[in-house]
């Protein structure tokens, strides 16, 4: 097998107590279908150990969980090595109904933003009201000029998912935004 590397090979950038980090390889599966369907709910629970999240929410612990992408789409997170098998298991469980389960792990960049004042840095890059952005909330929007999705964990850190080909742009944008100084702190 080829030598697998994440988009920035685990690079990290520190500025003003904030760390932007390429969080490495993360298994991600795009699952589309009827989210109210009982069979799909059971399959999701089996795949990642979490129930189907409510609209605009993510339930993710330790790199494993599910996030609400749109009324008919979920992002399933599992460890990288399990992604292909999990996608196959989801497809098998839902084979008699309209669905799509694809392993997109290698199409994604996964970035974490940790430290004090990360809300301010995100607010420089995305058109979202971060003062009212709750823990566990999941948002698809743009970061700078490119599409991205992110959620906030219990520690207040942001986890950002973007297209792998745009990972360096998102990483550099966040690192630069952190460098320019914190706002209102």
């Amino acid at each position: 097998m080829s030598d697998l590397k994440s988009f920035y090979e685990g690079r990290a950038a520190d500025a003003n107590g904030v760390t932007v980090r390429d969080a490495g390889l993360q298994g991600m599966i795009t699952l589309r279908g009827d989210l109210a369907n009982a069979k799909l709910k059971a399959a999701v629970k089996k795949a990642c150990g979490q129930a189907v999240p409510a609209a605009r929410r993510a339930v993710i612990t330790g790199g494993r969980g599910a996030a609400w992408m749109s009324p008919d789409e979920l992002l399933i997170l599992v460890p990288y090595a399990e992604a292909a098998a999990t996608a196959a298991a989801l497809a098998l469980a839902l084979k008699d109904q309209h669905h799509l389960a694809v392993n997109v792990s290698d199409a994604r960049a996964y970035i974490t933003l940790t430290g004090a004042g990360v809300d301010e840095i995100m607010a420089k890059c995305a058109p979202v009201d971060f003062a009212n952005f709750a823990v566990g909330e999941f948002r698809r929007t743009r970061i700078g000029q490119v599409a991205a999705a992110f959620w906030k964990d219990e520690a207040g850190a942001f986890h950002i998912v973007a297209f792998r080909s745009l990972g360096d742009y998102v990483f550099d944008l966040l690192a630069t935004s952190a460098k320019a100084g914190l706002v209102n702190l």
Binding site: A55, R56, S70, P71, P127, R139, T141, R142
Partner: peptide, 12 residues
């Protein structure tokens, strides 16, 4: 009306 986000023009 689908996801309930108050989306600003640049997101649309």
């Amino acid at each position: 009306p689908y996801c309930g986000v108050a989306a600003e023009e640049t997101e649309l």
